[in-house]
Design a binder for these strands. Sequence first.
DNA 1: CCTAATGTCTCTAGCGGCTATAGCTTCAAG
DNA 2: CTTGAAGCTATAGCCGCTAGAGACATTAGG
Lengths: 138, 138
Amino acid sequence: MFSIGDLSAATGVKVPTIRYYEQMGLMSAPSRSEGGQRRYTTAERDRLGFIRHARDLGLSLDAIRELIALSEEPERSCADVDAIARRHLDQIRARIAQLQRLEGELGRIVQSCSRGTVGDCSVLQALGDHALCETEHR
Amino acid sequence: MFSIGDLSAATGVKVPTIRYYEQMGLMSAPSRSEGGQRRYTTAERDRLGFIRHARDLGLSLDAIRELIALSEEPERSCADVDAIARRHLDQIRARIAQLQRLEGELGRIVQSCSRGTVGDCSVLQALGDHALCETEHR
DNA sequence: CCTAATGTCTCTAGCGGCTATAGCTTCAAG
DNA sequence: CTTGAAGCTATAGCCGCTAGAGACATTAGG
């Protein structure tokens, strides 16, 4: 049996975060020692590893909760799992595209600096006025 | 003089958000009507427009506060303004790079789906185990 | 066996950047 | 003058943690 600190060391998830996941229903309530401390099995450690990695991949706690629920019905088609992953991938791609628009716009703005005074700073003007933008970055 | 609703319509910033910006010190407290409602000048409307656009470009409220403070010292060199913008640009680029790592990894994971059952779902395995990853996406 | 250090417990509050709700007052058009 | 929209304050909630307080449990060394 592992203490919460052992789990933390094994997975890289901080101790308060593990308790938080329990509260949020991602980890089930573990057994307790005589003194009331949490004691985990290897299966519970592995589940935390799953959560950690899915979080690293950027999935929301809601999505992870769904995935865990699905993984407990092994007979089921994995289409739903696939859909969650694809949906997330789409979100990442959209986010990248938006950040790239920002990057382009900000890059242009920063380039325009003529190293003068704040009073006639083109950077400040461009930051304040969308009409000076070349792309739609909203 | 503009009401808070006028400002909202003019800039696209929601009414509660305008009050929030005031509370956060981004907008100074405006004058009030006899009945106690906020009344704004064109200068205040323009400042809100500045904030809106800077937010759209992804700057934090803290960064915007700094920019506003700088813009009130027009004699000063605009190097600090430039530095804030560049720092933000660097952050955006770092974020893009990280999201692209995630995109690559998730793309690979999603591709691996063999449309079977959850029980032997490669997507689920890959989501749970960083050892199956090709890149360092943490 | 005792002590000291470390780990763990619960509970509460805070972060950023809003958004929503409740219960009230004020304003402007007809 | 009435009415309905718009405004007011205050408070709480969202996500995903993180930090702190103050108390109890465990463990390693002497």
